[in-house]
Design a protein around this nucleic acid. Structure first.
Length: 648
DNA sequence: AGGACGTCGCATTATC
DNA sequence: GATAATGCGA
DNA sequence: GTCCT
């Protein structure tokens, strides 16, 4: 119970953090942007401070860690606000840039535990643990006081805790970051943050020390050598999957031939047409936002289509093979790195993190080299923040915020988040409970109270993270389909997602099942039978979630299976839907960036918006905005026809 | 300046 | 025990 | 974090 309470407190605090960030983002932005900024700004500030006599930024440039204490949320909130008002930055988890830890408790060991550290010596060198009283005194004195009388621990204990820190040992979590970051190059950075705060080091001396020791090891960005080699090269010729896609299945069978064939065929043809050319996976949604919205870039990057609109879609663009190389690969990677790192971190705004990923996509697909942030900010999707705070920082080659926040903690949490069923919240919780690696979790599974689904995710960690080769998707599809046909040959079953998009590899395999109701048939009850048969055959091995009602026309099953007993375990989803949603679902679940982008654009252009919830529910019409009822559209007049789109 | 940014089914946990 | 809230994946 | 209103 204590654990749950603690969890809730953390959530509350995290919320506070987010709200807080919003509130003071403007004042505080520079502080949070990392050491590099802090130095520059700190200097400017302190100079100006005298003249202005404001005195409210006593803690300017300092970074405080106040770990959430169970049952003391409101206290922490007030601490937080006070420190913020004094110009300090507050974090709830230690990172390599903190300068102070506020702690009123007794034991260093306890504090370490609260911070999620093995020992306090993992804190950045020079970090000062002080009691809250010190802050109060500083506030009253309106200046940063000596910490001596207010240290959290007795001199001796404190010293002991840090004595071993001078030469950081092998096991230190804080250190492997450094080596990680430097990509295995064996160098000896002993610390990543200059001791600040308590120490009376001058700004200039800090600068001097920081720069040379770290700078020279940074990758050299300004010459954006396209480093990508392996990943995005479309490995299959267009024909290969085109053929595959058009011959692969049942969808072509009974379903496509009946009276509804027009619509079905239309949809399928359209999609086939749209997926013309090599479409890279991994672009995710960025294609949508970016691909259709990049009007500024279009100015400088003229498309080759006679029709302007066509250039906005992937399918309308050239695919001469050369478009895989981006002059901004370096930036793209940086943003990907950011995304990976921050996605699990508590306190990072969801949408911000998501935008990092989007930015990576934009970087990669911007055909002209970005040499300064100002250029980039002209691109839609890249705003002032990304441009000035991040891009310029990356291009400078100096260690910045990302560098300092790339801690072993963040990495561990990111790894945990990759476990199926473990999200941001649980990942942080696991770390808090002492786990530092996947192996830690495996070594002592009991300790962490993983749910059944998470246990599966942990057990199959590597398999489930791996991509599934197209071949194997097909193999699984054949197995599932044959079982489905054995149950009822009139079933429509189609494989969705990236496979249907023609991708060379997929993250999972998902199936869509329905049956024509024309002759009174129905696929009700099929889900249960199918899953059972597949389980009997050993195709399905784990279950992650079951439909609320196995016999409903609309039912979702999620689990794990494999094509052969020797094969890797793969995520498998099976979805039954009412017959009249087939067309819409096909579009929706094909999740085709290419198809959805134009369709949404087109619908939007007509003052409509596609009910995005037209997914499993096709919950269609009405609601906040005018939503196109795709469901009926697909049935009565054909979705594409309904929006007046004619494919060639 | 302030809100939207997809939305929903299922599992699990919290609350009544 | 019923219901609400949260986390997660898609 | 960006965009739209």
């Amino acid at each position: 119970m204590g654990r749950l309470k603690g969890k809730k407190d953390l959530q509350t605090l995290t919320k506070h953090f987010e709200a807080f960030e919003k509130g003071v983002a403007k004042d505080n932005a520079a502080e949070r942007s990392g050491v590099t900024d802090r130095k520059g700004k700190g200097k400017a500030r302190s100079a100006g401070q005298v003249g202005l006599g404001l005195g409210s930024k006593v803690f300017d440039g300092l970074r405080f860690c106040i770990s959430p204490e169970i049952g003391a949320v409101s206290k922490h909130k007030s601490w937080w606000d006070i420190i913020a008002k004094m110009g300090g930055t507050v974090v709830i988890r230690p990172d390599t840039a903190i300068t102070h830890v506020i702690y009123d408790g007794r034991s260093a060991a306890l504090l370490a535990r609260e911070l999620g550290l093995d020992t306090l010596s993992e804190l950045p060198e020079g970090t000062v643990c002080v009691k809250w009283d010190w802050v109060v005194k500083c506030k009253m004195a309106n200046k940063v006081l000596e910490t001596g009388p207010w240290l959290s621990f007795q001199k001796t204990a404190f010293n002991r805790a840090f004595s071993s820190n001078a030469a950081i040992r092998e096991g230190s979590r804080m250190r492997d970051i450094t080596t990680d970051l430097l990509k295995g190059r064996s160098i000896s950075i002993t610390k990543r943050r200059e001791p600040s705060a308590s120490d009376s080091e001058t700004e200039s001396s800090k600068k001097q020390r920081a720069a040379p020791s770290v700078l020279e090891r940074q990758p050299q960005p300004p010459k954006p050598v396209p480093q990508r080699s392996s990943e995005a090269a479309p490995t299959a010729p267009a024909d290969a999957y085109r053929d595959n896609a058009t011959t692969h299945g049942a969808g072509r069978g009974p379903g496509w031939e009946n009276p509804l064939a027009n619509k079905g065929d239309g949809l399928d043809e359209l999609i086939s047409g749209l997926q013309d050319g090599t479409i890279r996976e991994d672009e995710d949604e960025s294609v949508k936002e970016n691909g259709i919205a990049n009007e500024v870039a279009d100015d400088e990057y003229e498309g080759t289509n006679p029709c302007l609109v066509a250039d906005k879609f992937k399918c309308g663009q050239n695919h001469d093979g050369a478009d895989d190389k981006s002059p901004n690969e370096y930036l793209a990677r940086k943003f990907e790195e950011m995304y990976d790192l921050y996605q699990g971190v508590a306190g990072k705004d969801f949408f911000s993190v998501r935008n990092y990923r989007m930015a990576a996509g934009i970087m990669r697909r911007t055909p002209w080299p970005i040499t300064k942030g100002a250029d980039a900010s002209k691109i839609k999707g890249i705003g002032a923040n990304l441009a000035e705070r991040w891009i310029d920082e990356f291009l400078s080659g100096r260690p910045g915020r990302l560098f300092y926040e790339d801690t072993s903690q963040a990495r561990a949490i990111a790894a945990f988040k990759d476990i199926y069923g473990v999200g941001k919240s649980q990942a942080n919780e696991l770390y808090k409970r002492g786990a530092r690696s996947i192996d830690d979790l495996r070594a002592d599974p009991e300790r962490y109270g993983l749910t059944s689904g998470q246990q599966v995710g942990l057990e199959l960690y590597d398999d489930l993270r791996a991509r599934i080769p197209r071949e194997e998707c097909k193999a699984i599809y054949d197995l599932v389909r044959s079982e489905a046909m054995a149950i009822d040959p009139k079933l429509w079953i189609e494989i969705m997602g990236s496979y249907r998009r023609g991708q060379e590899a997929s993250g999972d395999v998902d199936f869509l099942i329905t049956e024509d109701t024309e002759d009174g048939g129905s696929h009700a009850g099929v889900m249960g039978k199918l899953v059972n048969r597949l389980r009997d055959r050993g195709v399905i091995t784990h279950e992650l979630s079951q439909p609320h009602d196995w016999r409903a026309l609309e039912a979702k099953w999620m689990g794990v299976g494999r094509a052969t007993p020797e094969g890797k375990y793969r995520r498998i989803d099976i979805l039954c839907i009412p017959f009249d949603q087939w067309g819409a679902a096909l579009i929706y679940f094909t999740g085709n960036d290419v198809a959805s982008a134009p369709s949404q654009t087109i619908t939007a252009g007509r003052g409509l918006s596609m009910g995005k919830g037209s997914g499993s529910g096709c919950s269609g019409s009405g609601r906040p905005k005018d939503r196109l009822d795709v469901r009926s559209a697909s049935l009565e007049s054909g979705f594409w026809a309904s929006i007046g789109y004619r494919f060639v």
